[in-house]
């Protein structure tokens, strides 16, 4: 692992420090937008650890988010909510390890379809389970204050960024990139491909699980079709692709760009937002330098970054 440049770490600490004082100055609304930004940064960073680096594109990250939210509502009232958050991360991570073991044996578009299918399968399973339990939608009353939840989310965003940064600059990260460039060659030169991929998958599920748990409290409402919404997966992919890099900078830019766009559009013209999102995706896939689609589906050359 390379030493962390002093300038980068100073900027990182300064930004997080400044952001943590936001509740003292900003209005409730500004804090809500900032929380949403932190959430997407955390999700997109987590996605990058697996998908940006290995080229295995997951369209199912909503599963981890939803799983975390579900753990939170299930343990609500019996467990301290702050204890449920790491527990949610752990459950998501374990689920990823269990699902990843068979799923990571396929590549390219097959992996994309499989992750999407798994997430939908999980969604409809939980809808069924909830219906059987006689729980049709759950309400969380007495959640921590929005400011506390904002700080928690900020912490998760910082942690996710840190993880991506550390992995990106580590031996492990180079191994993951080698898998993206040419999996067989990577295996031949002695990279433990299966273990690396699985570790990355588990790592990329951990933070989304915790994000889901915090968001369940923020929304104070849980309903499976909403917590496991495929649009969450889709947004993550678009952010990471628009940000478009395999280190921690990409997801930050992508999230900033899309949150800005969505704040402008979601309330006034939600359909326009979706159209713009689709158009942007097409644009970036077709015209982004070095072809992000190639990277997603594997076999791309190393981009000059």
């Amino acid at each position: 692992m390379q030493p962390v440049p002093i300038r980068t770490s100073l900027i990182f600490v300064a930004v997080i420090g400044a952001a943590s004082f936001l509740p003292q100055f900003g209005s409730e609304y500004v804090v809500a937008v900032a929380l949403s930004f932190a959430m997407w940064v955390a999700l997109a960073q987590s996605w990058t650890v697996l998908c940006g680096m290995t080229g295995y594109g997951s369209f199912g990250h909503a599963a981890f988010y939803g799983m975390g939210a579900y753990v939170q509502v299930l343990t609500w009232g019996t467990l301290s909510p702050w204890l449920s958050v790491p527990l949610a991360g752990l459950v998501s991570c374990l689920f990823a390890l269990a699902a990843g073991y068979p799923a990571l044996k396929v590549r390219g578009p097959y992996f994309v379809m499989l992750t999407f299918g798994l997430a939908e399968f999980l969604k409809f399973s939980i809808i069924g389970i909830e219906a059987t339990l006689g729980q049709f939608s759950r309400l969380i009353i007495g959640a921590p204050s929005p400011n506390a939840l904002y700080l928690a989310m900020l912490g998760l965003a910082a942690a996710a960024t840190l993880i991506t940064y550390v992995v990106s600059n580590s031996r492990f990260g180079y191994g993951l990139r080698a898998i993206r460039e040419e999996e067989q060659a990577a295996e031949t030169i002695g990279i433990p491909v299966a273990r690396y991929k699985l570790t990355a998958f588990g790592l990329s599920a951990f933070i989304p699980g915790m994000v889901g748990a915090v968001m369940a409290m923020r929304l104070s409402y849980f309903e499976p079709s909403q917590a496991f919404d495929a649009l969450i997966s889709f947004n993550i992919v678009v952010m990471a692709m628009i940000g478009g890099s395999d280190d921690a900078r990409g997801p930050l830019l992508g999230a900033l760009f899309l949150i800005g766009l969505s704040e402008l559009l979601w309330a006034r013209a939600p359909q326009v937002y979706m159209i713009v999102l689709g158009a942007l995706l097409v644009f970036f896939v077709l015209f982004a330098p070095q072809g992000l689609a190639k990277q997603l589906f594997g076999g791309a050359r190393r981009r000059a970054t």
Partner: peptide, 11 residues
């Protein structure tokens, strides 16, 4: 979308 409902009432 119930998720949007939460966002909208907050807003």
């Amino acid at each position: 979308d119930a998720g949007k409902v939460v966002q909208i009432y907050e807003k």
